[in-house]
Design a protein around this nucleic acid. Structure first.
Lengths: 177, 177
DNA sequence: TAAGTTTGTTTCAAACTTGAACCAAGCGGT
DNA sequence: ACCGCTTGGTTCAAGTTTGAAACAAACTTA
């Protein structure tokens, strides 16, 4: 088939998206690196752990929700562990798995860092778009994500998982990745 | 001020955005790496050069439009140069600058790679959203980008630049970053 | 015109990411 | 129990990114 090139509108949207995502990640990373001494992804790991039951998650599950490779997560967790923010624990019911658990120190850093991070997300993103656009953004993104995740397996079995009871976020206003 | 945490809607939008952008970049990168042997950013450099007057641009200008650091661009261009896809040229009217110029080989690779890339952008993004959402996405992203670029200087002088005449894209249906 | 400053780019080391290869523990037959 | 397959994680080397420092060519101004 003769390539269906992007229309001018699509082209503009695509380029605007690339630019925005690059600038946004840079801004978030810069702030987090400055005030928390860590890149965005590291913060996300802490944030996700803080909301998990017992503040711990299996490596694979964490990688899955963060949309990153297990290999990448291994690195990040090792790094966080080295700094005492996370602890690895063995999984009792599946000897293959290992759990990443948020330490008190990690939780403390997260709580100390969250306000500045959220403020940045606000000033760079939400202050710039209307409430209506917030909804549009969510719809667009969930649509894209739905189409992309697990496209390798097709049988999207719908998260069944372990029936863990969800706790309320320990960070009154959750740290938001 | 007591942190204004994200509302549930904002939270959902933010997380959906993070997920989507991560998945999208991964998909794009994977395809480009497979079929073109290079990551997305490298492709973008070639694409941008292909549309520039004489298929060449100053490093700084290129970095600016790509929203990346000069240092990062230096690396990318060195890499592309090593593979004969780009050539560095000295700038006649400003001895400090150096120009990155697309070689014929680079242009050929771009033309060979563009269809697959565009197809991927289409199937991962545009096939998943409505025409209306394309417009919404563009508006949202340009808004974010506008707020973010050059926030360091405040005096956004509005691109004055050299009055170069723009050529029409050499790739009939442009390669779209 | 000689400082002193700004602008354009590169360099370098440290940090991060990728993907393929590897190991170990579960699982499903036989 | 044994074999082969899948799943959960890590390792390792090669590739990429970051940020600070170094240079060099303009520009400014006394």
């Amino acid at each position: 088939m003769t390539t269906r090139w992007l229309t001018p509108e699509e082209q503009r949207a695509w380029r605007a998206y690339i630019a925005a995502s690059r600038l946004l990640e840079d801004a978030i990373d810069r702030q987090l690196q400055q005030d928390g001494g860590m890149p965005h992804l590291f913060y996300s790991v802490l944030a996700n752990l803080s909301e998990a039951p017992d503040r711990q998650l299996r490596m694979t599950d964490l990688a899955e929700t963060l949309k990153i490779t297990r290999s990448r997560l291994t690195y990040v967790v090792s790094r966080l562990e080295r700094d005492g923010l996370v602890r690895r624990e063995t999984c009792s019911w599946d000897k293959r798995s290992s759990l990443a658990a948020l330490t008190d120190e990690g939780m403390a850093l997260l709580e100390r860092t969250a306000p500045g991070h959220v403020e940045t997300v606000r000033s760079t993103l939400f202050d710039r778009i209307t409430p209506e656009q917030v909804g549009q953004l969510e719809e667009i993104c969930t649509g894209i994500a739905r189409g992309l995740q697990g496209e390798d397996d097709g049988t999207r079995a719908g998260a069944e998982e372990v029936p863990w009871r969800r706790r309320s976020s320990p960070c009154s206003g959750s740290p938001s990745d």
